[in-house]
């Protein structure tokens, strides 16, 4: 089993604490490592982007264990999360093994060039809520964490923004996206809709976590 990155010195009032969903993504990538390495072979240097990197545990795990020859560019609207992601990557590198990871404060992938991302990772704010909260105006605002959780109707408002853009964000030949869902997001219906739009959608891993059922779907072009 691949070791879980160390996370420490994090203010969990401001940054999402690694939880069942984060660990499900780690297990997902452990299971997918052969598929991913095969997909990117030895002749490419892929760009990995995680939207909403939070503590940075998933991106650090990916950079360290799954595709060490990649470059990672994480995004998060939360400035505390960006800083924490950088710190977590740093804390988990050794003298002989530095991680190529940058963190940018950004909404989704708004400032990343089209068709640049080879692997997109997203653990969305998937909790159904009356609406998606606004982005706070200053760093000291106490509501940054809400953005990591609340996903509007069906918990799918933010996730659909990403899915509807997948065609332009993912690189043409190799692009692949891993997105996490809870049962209340109705992932089967989402998968069906995406299949009708020309995507191959596969369920990679699924697990009961407390009273939630979480799953990760993989999206590639047909």
């Amino acid at each position: 089993m691949l070791p879980t990155p160390e996370v420490k010195d994090i203010d969990y009032d401001k940054v999402y604490e690694p939880s069942e969903d984060s660990f499900l993504l780690l297990d997902c990538f452990e299971q997918e490592q052969d598929y991913i390495r095969k997909r990117f072979g030895n002749t490419s240097s892929p760009l990995i982007t995680e939207i909403g990197s939070g503590s940075g545990i998933v991106s650090t795990f990916f950079a360290k264990h799954i595709l060490p020859k990649s470059v990672v560019l994480t995004t998060d609207v939360n400035p505390h999360a960006c800083q924490t992601t950088l710190n977590t990557a740093k804390q988990n590198q050794t003298e002989n093994e530095t991680l190529r990871l940058d963190a940018a404060q950004m909404n989704l992938t708004d400032a990343i060039r089209p068709k640049a991302i080879d692997v997109l990772i997203f653990n969305p704010p998937y909790v159904p809520a009356s609406e998606v909260p606004d982005i706070p105006k200053d760093e000291a605002d106490p509501t940054w964490l809400d953005l990591a959780l609340l996903g509007g109707e069906d918990g799918m408002v933010t996730t659909w923004q990403v899915l509807n853009n997948l065609q332009t964000t993912l690189s043409q030949d190799q692009g692949v996206a891993y997105i996490l869902f809870c049962a209340r997001n109705k992932p089967d219906e989402v998968a069906e809709k995406m299949r009708r739009q020309g995507w191959q959608v596969d369920l990679i891993i699924s697990r009961k976590a407390g009273w939630e059922v979480l799953s990760v779907l993989r999206f590639v072009r047909n």
Binding site: V77, P79, Q83, A104, Q105, M106, N107
Partner: peptide, 18 residues
Amino acid sequence: YYIKNSIPNFLLPPHLAN
């Protein structure tokens, strides 16, 4: 856009947000 502490900030003010 500004870069601070090595972190570029691409958040847009509400009137420019997509």
